[in-house]
Design a protein around this nucleic acid. Structure first.
Length: 691
DNA sequence: GATCCTCGAGTTCG
DNA sequence: CTCGAGGATC
């Protein structure tokens, strides 16, 4: 065996074994050049384990034997990502990529001579796996979290620690680390965890042999593996990671995406071996399209090719919109399509009264998932494609998720079909339906339409609105069916006696439900406004209105002009709000809710006038943010500014009052100086807002 | 008037 | 996730 000369000192011997094992992991996973057989590797592990069990005091938390720790006891803790994990903008063909290239050139051109220093890009196949964020503190893996919704993910540290392909310690091989790369105290690495296809097939073959059920999709198997409550099971799945991003790359001493990938590799993390740098976008497109056609040569599922601007400085200047960076785009592989037949087209009624045509399909498989329904959106969608009952249609899963009818195959149309038409009446209540001239949607305008009422109640109790725990679609349906409730106000009139003696309603459940309804009386105004279902008023707009008006009475009195003064509210939303409060039935609903003890106002700080948010030192000031601030994130700075009455705008112009600049400020700083805009820093902001 | 971005609403399957 | 449409900005 490799460790053939045991030293008398167990501590030194343990050290040596650990180093050997780490090096073999590194060779196996990163260099793809194993120096020993699996059996030899296992023997090293056995030796280390024996040594550690004889000398428990020698066990260190980062020892390879400690990968599988205690299973988490209940579920997974939530982790908030300090820098949100954004998704990628999609391109569906080469022209979309060209348009993206032109957009970023247009954005950078005013401030830079792009002729002299052409943009470079980095492209690599896009792995269809699970995005994760790994945190290394002083080189030790201390936390691993899933992407989740981008802002909050799940803590899967103990599971990720169980994966041999992910180093517990960085650098994995100090000798291979070039001197110019510095390991910061805290390093967050982002990447994609995936199930290699060869291993996936082997696992399925084994499961089948054992008579167990197999996995349909490698991503599900990888996700299932990561979310095992028992990390020992995770350890059996040979999941791998491609690292591709670091939220704060400056700390690593790199200036480009390609340099970042080199650094990650030098630290011992695997990166996509097919990553390539281009200065010619056309050459890159050829490369990307090449991979789209040869996806099956890869040992992982790829759903496209990721393209990024190479320069981190330019990435920084391009910035991001709310859910994707401007400096990257994913050229998506065409979604897998298949054919099926339309069994029926029916029309459903949404809570707004919108009539939505819907196709029931003969069940069809796409990538192992059975599709049996698809939305047809609106009248135009069906009529333009001339989709009829009985038709054979091409379907796909848009974004690999939402079933979509792409087009009809007219040659396969049976005899005797008739074109589909939007019904003139609401299928639920039979009242006439209306479609405004310039709109694509048809509405049932009957305010007492039972379908709308049902949807409305479901919405009222849902998360995001009044959030009544334990009250969902099922109970709403039951309560309406039994005549217990006819509108949202009736929810607050429910008494325990109404439910007693019903099947499934024990004492405990009734008490819980009553408590949940009671708790809903005290929701913030914004949530109540969401629940009321005013057209164009969702979570965001409701929050804006609540912040400005504080109470439903003041909101009800506001005219269109006053409403449109709120940033984010224009004429459409304003008129929709006014129209809602003009209806007598809505006014009386508000009165009923008031009598039933539902809170209709947000508490105001004592010293405040109704339309004052406290001191407004930055009232009407327009401020641009640039660079990295010492302690505040961009969104925190934005929140502070807005709280003080200021407005954060995207680009420097004559109308800008201040430029709030941090480190690595780029063109905005130059522009501000040119336009003689006052440049300020974080300390100034804290001073002004009294922070 | 064009362009970019954000928001609301409805959406499927496991 | 996708669609359509509203709003901000230049």
């Amino acid at each position: 065996m490799t460790d053939s000369s045991p030293t008398p000192d167990p501590s030194a011997r343990a050290q040596r074994l650990r180093t050997q094992i780490r090096q073999h992991n590194y060779r196996y996973y990163i260099l793809d050049d194993p120096a020993i057989t699996d059996a030899e590797y296992d023997a090293l592990m056995v030796a280390l384990r024996e040594l550690e069990s004889e000398h428990p005091e020698l066990v260190t938390p980062d020892s390879p034997t400690q990968r599988v720790g205690a299973p988490p006891d209940d579920g997974f803790a939530k982790v908030t990502h300090e820098t949100p994990m954004l998704s990628l903008d999609n391109a569906f063909d080469a022209d979309d990529v060209r348009a993206w290239g032109e957009r970023i050139h247009r954005r950078l051109a005013p401030d830079h001579d792009l002729e002299a220093a052409p943009l470079a890009y980095v492209a690599e196949p896009k792995v269809d796996g699970l995005a994760v964020a790994l945190v290394y503190q002083n080189g030790r893996l201390t936390r691993a979290a899933t992407r989740g919704n981008g802002r909050v993910g799940e803590d899967v540290t103990s599971n990720v620690r169980a994966l041999r392909s992910i180093p517990l310690v960085l650098p994995a091989d100090p000798a291979a680390l070039p001197p110019e790369i510095t390991l910061p105290e805290r390093l967050e690495v982002r990447g994609e965890i995936y199930f290699p296809l060869s291993d996936f097939e082997a696992m399925n073959a084994r499961l089948e042999e054992e008579g167990k059920s197999t996995y349909v999709h490698p991503r599900n198997a990888a996700a299932g593996g990561l979310r095992q409550l028992d990390p020992a099971i995770t350890a059996e799945r040979p999941l791998r990671l491609f690292a591709y991003a670091v939220p704060e790359p400056a700390a690593l001493g790199v200036t480009t995406q390609s340099g970042l990938l080199d650094a990650l590799r030098a630290l011992g993390l695997q990166t996509n071996p097919h990553s390539r740098r281009f200065t010619d976008l056309e050459a890159l497109i050829a490369f990307a399209e090449g991979w789209l056609g040869r996806r099956d040569e890869l040992d992982y599922l790829a759903d496209g090719v990721v393209i990024k601007v190479d320069s981190l400085r330019w990435q920084n200047e391009l910035g991001a919109v709310s859910h994707h960076p401007r400096w990257a785009v994913a050229l998506k592989a065409p979604a897998e399509e298949t054919t099926t037949t339309v069994e029926r087209i029916e029309v459903r009624v949404g809570r707004t009264g919108r009539l939505v045509p819907h196709a029931t399909l003969a069940p069809a498989q796409i990538r192992g998932v059975t599709i049996s329904q698809a939305t047809l959106h609106n009248e135009d969608y069906v009529v333009e494609r001339d989709i009829r009952e009985g038709d054979t249609v091409l379907i796909k899963r848009a974004g690999d998720v939402i079933p979509q009818v792409v087009r009809v195959l007219p040659d396969l149309r049976p005899e005797g079909t008739t074109p589909w038409t939007m019904p003139a009446i609401c299928p639920a209540c039979g009242e006439p339906a209306e479609r405004a001239e310039e709109e694509s949607d048809t509405y049932c305008v009957n305010a007492s339409c039972p379908a709308q009422l049902q949807r409305h109640l479901e919405h009222f109790v849902a998360r995001g609105a009044m959030d009544i725990d334990g009250l969902g679609i099922k109970l709403v349906t039951l309560f309406i069916g039994e005549g217990l409730i006819q509108g949202v106000a009736d929810l607050f009139r429910l008494k325990p006696e109404d439910l007693e003696g019903r099947e499934g309603f024990g004492e405990k459940r009734i008490a819980n439900l009553m408590a949940a309804i009671d708790a809903a009386r005290d929701r913030p105004l914004g949530r109540l406004l969401v629940g009321l279902g005013i057209r164009h008023v969702g979570g965001t707009v409701a929050g804006l209105l609540a912040r400005r008006f504080h109470s439903i009475d003041l909101l009800a009195e506001a005219d269109e002009e006053a409403l449109a003064e709120v940033d984010g509210v224009g004429p459409e939303i304003a008129s929709s709000v006014v129209a809602w409060f003009e209806l007598p039935r809505n006014r009386s609903l508000v009165e009923e809710l008031r009598e039933l003890g539902v809170r209709l106002a947000d508490p105001e700080p004592e010293t405040r006038a109704p339309d004052d948010d406290g001191p407004q030192p930055l009232a009407d000031k327009r401020i641009v943010l640039t660079g990295t601030l010492p302690t505040l994130t961009r969104s925190e700075a934005r929140a502070l500014i807005e709280q003080a009455g200021g407005k954060v705008v995207g680009s420097v112009s004559k109308k800008t009052d201040y430029l709030l600049a941090g480190e690595n400020a780029g063109s905005k700083l130059a522009k501000a100086e040119e336009l003689e805009v006052e440049v300020v820093d974080e300390a100034w902001l804290r001073g002004v807002v009294g922070g």
